[in-house]
Design a protein around this nucleic acid. Structure first.
Length: 262
DNA sequence: GTACTGCATGGGC
DNA sequence: CGCCCATGCAGTA
């Protein structure tokens, strides 16, 4: 696209027009009130770009309230409005994990993620904030070929992550061996119905909508890493996942996961 | 045949 | 050696 402009002798005029157009668009957008859906998508794009460059630190960034005033979905009854609504979200401690209140949270996370990456404790999806009260900390997985292959495409998760981040959130009547229906959200707030299940062989998987999630985002093995948050929908109590992905084109081998030292 | 599920296996740690 | 997990492939709808 840029090359075309360079070869075109009248490109300066066009460029000028484009610049003016762009400036007008930016001015317009600055005043534009966004729908919840559009705001969510923009937030997702921002998060994706910044998280890939390791620049995103959602938890530490002071954020203005999202400009959502038109078409905003009504908040569930009892929910406090505003960006900091679920302040008292309850984090479920892992059975093995010790809770050391003085310890900075970032240190706890480090070592579990690839590179310098500290995803927020809560999925950075504005439309989900009022739904989350009970949740666990995120975990990450480098995708394998069986995670993304068309004839398989189920997300397998390791024992440690499942025991630490999913099992603590399960209710008594939810049996992973039977399969638990879950709703998975992407960073745009789009829903994918999936099933979380533990096979007889003790493999833990996410099936069902995982395939379309994979397709929609064009996920590939090894270079793509998914971050998984697990929480309960405070309104209907259902088990929910939120999944984001980051891509490292330079990564072409399986990364060995560091053993947790307890 | 196609899409999907889930058990069994073997390599790696 | 035992455990874990990626995946091969058999079975089902």
């Amino acid at each position: 696209m840029v090359d075309q402009y360079c070869e075109d002798p009248s490109h300066e005029d066009k460029e000028m027009a484009t610049t003016t157009e762009g400036a007008n668009l930016l001015l317009y957008l600055k005043r534009k009130l966004l729908s919840a859906e559009t705001a969510g998508k923009l937030e997702y794009m921002k998060y994706k770009v910044l998280s890939q460059n390791g620049l995103y630190s959602y938890a530490r960034t002071k954020r203005k309230a999202p400009r959502i005033e038109v078409d905003e979905a009504p908040l569930p009854q009892g929910a406090i409005s505003g960006p900091s609504a679920p302040q008292e979200a309850i984090e479920v401690a892992s059975p093995r994990g010790r809770r050391l209140p003085e310890e900075p949270q970032l240190q706890v996370i480090q070592g579990l993620f690839y590179g310098k990456y500290a995803p927020p404790d809560l999925p950075p999806v504005p439309s989900l904030r009022s739904l989350i009260q009970v949740h666990s900390k995120p975990f990450e997985k480098q995708l394998t070929s069986s995670d993304v292959r068309d004839d398989q495409s189920r997300l397998s998760m390791c024992k440690e992550d499942v025991e630490n981040h999913i099992f603590p959130l399960l209710k008594d009547d939810e049996d992973p061996n039977q399969g638990i229906p879950v709703t998975t959200y992407d960073m745009g707030g789009n829903e994918y119905p999936m099933v979380f299940k533990t096979w007889v062989s003790k493999t833990h998987v996410l099936t069902g909508g995982w395939k379309s999630f994979c397709h929609d985002r064009g996920l590939v093995e090894k270079t793509d890493f998914v971050t998984v948050w697990v929480f309960r929908n405070v309104v209907n109590g259902s088990l929910c996942f939120a999944i984001n992905s980051r891509r490292f084109p330079a990564v072409s081998e399986a990364i060995k996961k560091r053993r947790r030292q307890n």
